[in-house]
Design a binder for these strands. Structure first.
Ligand SMILES: NC(=O)c1ccc[n+]([C@@H]2O[C@H](COP(=O)([O-])OP(=O)(O)OC[C@H]3O[C@@H](n4cnc5c(N)ncnc54)[C@H](O)[C@@H]3O)[C@@H](O)[C@H]2O)c1
Ligand SMILES: NC(=O)c1ccc[n+]([C@@H]2O[C@H](COP(=O)([O-])OP(=O)(O)OC[C@H]3O[C@@H](n4cnc5c(N)ncnc54)[C@H](O)[C@@H]3O)[C@@H](O)[C@H]2O)c1
Lengths: 208, 208
DNA sequence: GTGAGCTTGTGCTTTCTTTCACAATCTCCA
DNA sequence: TGGAGATTGTGAAAGAAAGCACAAGCTCAC
């Protein structure tokens, strides 16, 4: 039963279950057992059951989990059951790749605008949005009710951009620049550190 | 003292310390205390000391850590003290962004080639390398002694690519496609799941 | 209907991480 | 040179997460 709050590792896995369930659903299956989820995700069956049990009782003994209802419930729990508007700041290489990603144009996320501070980029199109002046960010995100911001600027600019985002009413920020951002009041920040991943991989390289 | 092996969370943080130290070094400082590292990284001073203690005694009481020696030692521990060759498979949006990233052209990493299976891309340049036929991957990586592979293909292709990489002698793989890869014998895989990050951020969005 | 066969939910145990606190050590200035 | 002040390394304690095992519950075939 839902006692208290779920640990963060559980939340991370929820997203994996969701992806798994979407695929299973697309395959036309109606139910899946925790063992079936283990097979597809590599996450232990016991772990799966425990994770889900933080949020309620979704399964039927002897049968497993009904795919569609679980999909609906998990989407709700993850707050992925209504559209979220997203902006990207820093229309460089990485920003452009993300902006073009179809995952950002799904039924859940929609990319509203991209921003930059480089005059030669402002006004140009980036895929299907226009690159706007970053100084307009607070106004635009406020007006449009944007909830999520993605930072793909150089590290030096990240803190300032985060503050602009907070000013524009953005509550959650995904930061790709390799620097620590001090969260403006009321915002959550998640850092994605690609160089870190690359370096960590080296640690695990077979020692000569 | 180095008792046994360091926990994975520690290894992840090592990469952060390294980045911090590089910056501190660039600023010309000779020493830094664990408290100083906390200030810059947000990681608790006690945690810093414990992490470092897994690998040896690097600091001097009353003074802190000598920046340059620590940088050298940590680089060695992370196996970042000699150049590593890297290839990217999947010369699409994300692959192109990564290929152009200067972090991959540093003194530590060097991008050797990019691969694709799309005939209209093969033979074209991607930044300063040429896009090659993915079928040539095992031969080329073998010949060049490539140690790290990055996968930026669609999910369906990832498993096959990983196996080609293993065949080509690659030991460590960074996978950006949203799928689970079953590690070929002798390879380490790290997954970077950008959509997961975006979904998790929604969970932490303020509940209405 | 009934029993064999799965599969769940969960309390308990084990393992892994982080935090705490302090003796030991070093610096540096008077 | 000596003592005040700073900072380390680390055991011990607390806290968090994962693994385990099994009673309870559901299904389905006969
Ligand atoms: N490209 C990659 O694959 C990659 C990999 C790992 C990390 N990163 C990080 O992601 C970030 C972006 O990388 P990139 O390769 O796209 O760099 P880039 O130079 O191609 O793009 C950065 C963009 O940010 C814009 N910008 C700079 N200051 C700004 C400001 N104050 N407000 C708004 N826009 C601003 C620039 O005009 C530029 O368009 C960097 O922090 C980089 O370290 C990138
Ligand atoms: N673009 C992003 O920002 C982004 C974000 C999150 C995740 N991803 C993931 O990264 C991967 C790449 O995304 P993308 O946007 O660059 O896609 P993309 O379609 O632009 O690029 C994929 C490339 O892989 C090549 N490819 C396909 N099969 C191949 C094979 N068997 N061998 C070699 N090459 C092959 C294609 O020809 C194409 O050039 C996808 O799995 C995507 O889900 C991308």
């Amino acid at each position: 039963m839902p006692t208290g709050r779920a640990p963060e590792p559980t939340v991370l896995r929820l997203s994996i279950y969701l992806r798994c369930l979407r695929q299973v659903h697309a395959e036309g299956l109606d139910t899946i057992s925790s063992a079936g989820i283990q097979e597809r995700t590599g996450i232990t069956a016991g772990q799966v059951r425990k994770d889900l049990s933080y949020f309620g009782e979704f399964g039927k003994p002897g049968l497993g989990y009904a795919v569609e209802p679980l999909l609906t419930r998990l989407s709700h729990i993850m707050q992925l059951d209504r559209p979220r508007k997203v902006v990207i700041v820093g229309a460089g290489n990485l920003g452009a790749a993300l902006a073009g990603y179809q995952g950002l144009r799904s039924s859940i996320f929609s990319l509203v605008a991209a921003f930059d501070n480089n005059l030669s980029k402002i006004g140009r199109p980036l895929w299907d949005v226009e690159i706007k002046d970053v100084r307009e960010l607070p106004r635009i995100t406020q007006e449009q009710g944007v909830e999520i911001g993605i930072i793909t600027t150089p590290a030096e600019a990240a803190q300032g951009v985060a503050e602009l985002m907070a000013q524009g009413g953005i509550r959650s920020i995904l930061n790709f620049s390799p620097t620590r951002i001090v969260s403006p009041q009321g915002t959550t920040i998640r850092n994605v550190d690609l160089m870190k991943e690359l370096e960590v991989i080296c640690f695990y390289l077979p020692k000569p």
